[in-house]
């Protein structure tokens, strides 16, 4: 597997508060990686640093072997690293299709272009194809404000994929989605992304989702990485159980995990 992203001793401080410290992560092309950790553990700070929203206080970020530390967000997006948000970042006064059309228009331009029409039949077809991939094409002509939270999340993620990124960060993709729908939601999502060979790092609080969809898992605790490895091993790790999973996921260390599909993930 080719490593596409590597961080070396990444650190971010806010005054005396250390939000992230010694973050060393490698992500391979096409892999799916789950990130767990309680609120304030440094998960989103890590994503913000890699995507250029927050400059790291120290450390290095390499994308395909080249340093991208401190580059502005837009440049990093152009390189092929995109993200979705815990709170969907959409264009709320517009419809779903319009959101996709604008996202495609912007993503395909290096600089603002004058006089040439931005939207034609090809772009519209591309937008519909993307919505179809995420199985939300039936909402194409609906206003954003009338959508259920799960569909908003999918639109947000679909918009993040318009430039066919090599690496996609999903910040709590199932937050706000009802418990009954989470599994199906993730299945739609992972299926849509698998077809593009995009590496996916998703932050998640639901351990069943992590077990089901990510072969590898990284646990954050107080700004540092507590464990990184196969999901089954990480979820059985004593420190992870004590500091991250807590009472939410009590299981004996030798107990195999029964997942929604009936397969043992451990």
């Amino acid at each position: 597997m080719t490593t596409i992203l590597e961080t070396k001793n990444l650190e971010r401080t806010f005054g005396a508060v250390v939000a992230a410290k010694d973050i060393n992560i490698r992500i391979d092309a096409g892999e799916v990686l789950g990130v767990i950790g309680s609120n304030g553990a440094g998960k989103t700070t890590f994503v913000n640093m890699v995507t250029g929203y927050l400059p790291p206080s120290s450390g290095e970020i390499l994308y395909r072997g080249a340093p991208i530390t401190g580059k502005p967000t837009r440049e990093i997006m152009r390189l092929g690293i995109c993200r979705s948000f815990q709170i969907p970042q959409l264009f709320p006064e517009m419809g779903v299709l319009d959101n996709m059309l604008i996202a495609l228009t912007i993503a395909k331009q290096q600089k603002p272009v004058l006089f040439r029409p931005a939207i034609d039949r090809v772009v519209e077809d591309e937008a519909i194809a993307l919505l179809t991939r995420f199985r939300i094409e039936r909402y194409a002509h609906q206003e954003i404000q009338t959508l259920p939270q799960g569909v908003r999340k999918l639109v947000d993620i679909a918009m993040a994929t318009v430039s066919d990124p090599a690496l996609l960060f999903l910040d709590e993709p199932t937050s706000g989605v009802s418990a009954d729908e989470k599994m199906d939601f993730m299945r739609v999502l992972i299926d849509a992304l698998k077809s593009t060979d995009t590496a996916v790092l998703f932050i998640e609080h639901d351990m069943e989702i992590v077990e089901e969809f990510s072969p590898r898992c990284v646990a954050f605790y107080e700004g540092t990485i507590l464990a990184d490895g196969p999901t089954g091993d990480v979820l059985k790790d004593a420190k992870v159980r004590e500091f991250v999973i807590g009472s939410e996921f009590h299981r004996k260390p030798d107990e195999s995990v029964e997942t929604a599909t009936g397969k043992g993930a451990a």
């Binding site: 837009r74 264009f91 993503a107 331009q109 939207i119």
Partner: peptide
């Protein structure tokens, strides 16, 4: 279209590159 998007959500515009 970029201007329309800036009015609605500038953060997303930057994250679209």
């Amino acid at each position: 279209y970029i201007n329309e998007a800036i009015r609605e959500n500038e953060l997303r515009v930057e994250y679209l590159g």
